[in-house]
Nucleic acid binder design. Structure first.
Lengths: 143, 143
DNA sequence: AAAGTGGGTTGGGTATTCCAACTAACGCTC
DNA sequence: GAGCGTTAGTTGGAATACCCAACCCACTTT
């Protein structure tokens, strides 16, 4: 019986983006919102917590804090490459929420460059087939 | 300026699975672990919190608590259809963690039924193309 | 009869979060 | 040039959540 928790990239990922408000702040930045006050009111996070979360995201390398005005000093938060790579996670989570939590129509709609409304599908990179739980098998995991 | 937070399926989803330990408990159940004690030690969650989380997941319809033995009473947690549907979120999150957080080799490896190691890819359901941030455009969102 | 297993609950202390108010640096307007 | 507004936070105290060890209960095993 392992006394120690399992080592796992899900746990590691949640160590960076798993705290309350973090994913909502990132959602806002994906939406194109860049300013502190707007992120605060669009998410509902209190300002002190939001400041802490944004600092951590900058420290973790998911965001960059850029000064876009010197007088008065004004900042904006922009996604780095690792931060941008989270769009698949947000999209997949949003889709699950649309299907299984939100009542009624999806509150947020994205369009893909192909012209259609964007619904994400998770496929196997090797064969291109849609991934179903019955088709995946655990090969190796830490004890 | 909206005083109220944005309505959004990401927020709604996080209302169900966004608390600490919840996704790790679900990960264990995806791994095939069914018993309370094992979930507790594999995640590192304290027993009282884990009990609260599992109760909420059952109440939310993601898990079913099944008695598989009467004497002594023994229970197991099994995923319902909405719960199983989360596998894409877990996989996508794990992949992001493998690439951007975990140092060294991925601690957990899944195999797809096609025979290859499973790496998830998020594609547009309509056209089948890999989704990149530059190819998605926000059409409608709540204020 | 004592120890072990599985699935929790309880009590008490610690850590986080929430909220309103405050600072600070400027710009705008009358 | 005094006051108001904007942006980006910080501070202090109260409320909430979390952690941990110990305990309970119903059995089974030795």
């Amino acid at each position: 019986m392992p006394t120690h928790p399992r080592e796992c990239s899900i746990a590691n990922a949640l160590g960076v983006i798993g705290e309350r408000w973090t994913l909502l702040a990132l959602r806002e930045i994906f939406f194109g919102v860049r300013r502190f006050d707007q992120i605060a009111s669009n998410t509902g996070a209190s300002r002190d917590i939001l400041a802490t979360r944004l600092r951590k995201l900058v420290d973790s390398g998911l965001l960059e804090k850029r000064q876009y005005e010197e007088h008065p000093p004004r900042y904006e938060y922009v996604l780095t490459e690792p931060g941008r790579a989270l769009h698949t996670v947000l999209l997949t989570l949003m889709d699950w929420g649309d299907r299984h939590v939100t009542q009624g129509a999806p509150p947020t709609v994205w369009e893909h460059s192909c012209g259609e409304v964007l619904h994400p599908r998770t496929v196997c990179e090797a064969c291109g087939e849609t991934v179903h739980t019955r088709d995946m098998r655990l090969v190796r995991a830490s004890e």
